[in-house]
Design a protein around this nucleic acid. Structure first.
Lengths: 157, 157
DNA sequence: GTAAGTGAAAGTCAAAGAAAGTCAAAGTAA
DNA sequence: TTACTTTGACTTTCTTTGACTTTCACTTAC
């Protein structure tokens, strides 16, 4: 018996397939209704199947007219995607800067974008325990790369 | 299903676009009538979408011949430092996005920079305890704003 | 002319409504 | 047993509505 979560996962993936955008928007309650399950089941599927390391970014809003937006990072063989998988679960500030410099050298980002990206990797500013900084930094860097990757894709087919 | 507030927001923004001044004047009741909503809905939109940190100033007068004047105020670098002190020690994702949208609207940053900045604020990706997210977010946003402000300084005069 | 009254605005605030989020307990499968 | 799923009660956030208040320009009474 297929798991409900798997069915929902497939359903969402087919929605993304069919969309001509790189993202879809759903209503949590509607979806829960279709599958006749608790709304929080949807959150579970999103957390386990559509997280960053699976190549997705989730954005949402509560209240009237609320929504959940599921953004798929293009999985191609380009620089960006490779970098993202290269980075792994943790990274030092200096290594992070190297990645950013590489993008800059190849003119994939502007100087200001590079500066912006480096600013958040700054060891000094991250308000978490020392040992967690490389982890947080890796996540921040990856989410920025994912965003850029989306953005570059849009631009030049 | 677009939110009423968003429709009203867009409507007001297009009015400002079309005007050749940096402000427009509306009648609250007329506008409420166009959108078939409670007049106080207009106040809600003004408070949430056209406030100071969004780069707008509201002036109004009650009584017969009353009006609401919405002024789009030119935003510049020194304004960014004001933003930074406005933010305080913690901020929600949606408020953070508003700050970024303001910079974009006033052409201080590019769309890609905005996307980059927003990606880092994403509630879902921050790998810290729930209650710490607004704190981390505030730090990240402020450091990015500081970087930008620095960058803008260098560039023009 | 001034004061009081009148109606036409806009303002305030709190309650109701509409989503989504969280968390932990209970259920299942490997 | 252990890890993964499902469920549901409760919370938080954002929006919409409406009753009530305040302010202002204009009349009317004196």
């Amino acid at each position: 018996m297929a798991r409900l979560s798997d069915l929902i996962e497939d359903f969402i993936k087919s929605l993304i397939e069919d969309a001509d955008k790189e993202y879809i928007e759903i209503k949590r309650n509607e979806l829960a209704n279709i599958f006749n399950c608790a709304p929080s089941q949807i959150n579970y599927v999103l957390e386990t199947r559509f997280n960053l390391s699976n190549g997705y970014i989730i954005e949402s809003r509560r209240g009237g007219g609320g929504y959940i937006k599921i953004i798929k990072r293009p999985v191609s063989k380009d620089w960006m995607s490779k970098m993202i998988s290269d980075i792994g679960d943790n990274i030092t500030e200096s290594k992070g800067r190297l990645y950013i410099d590489t993008l800059l050298e190849h003119s994939l980002i502007t100087g200001r974008e590079a500066a912006l990206m480096k600013s958040v990797l700054n060891e000094k500013i991250l308000p978490v325990a020392q040992y967690k900084k490389p982890i947080l930094r890796a996540i921040l860097l990856k989410v920025m790369l994912a965003e850029l990757s989306n953005n570059l894709m849009k631009r030049s087919d």
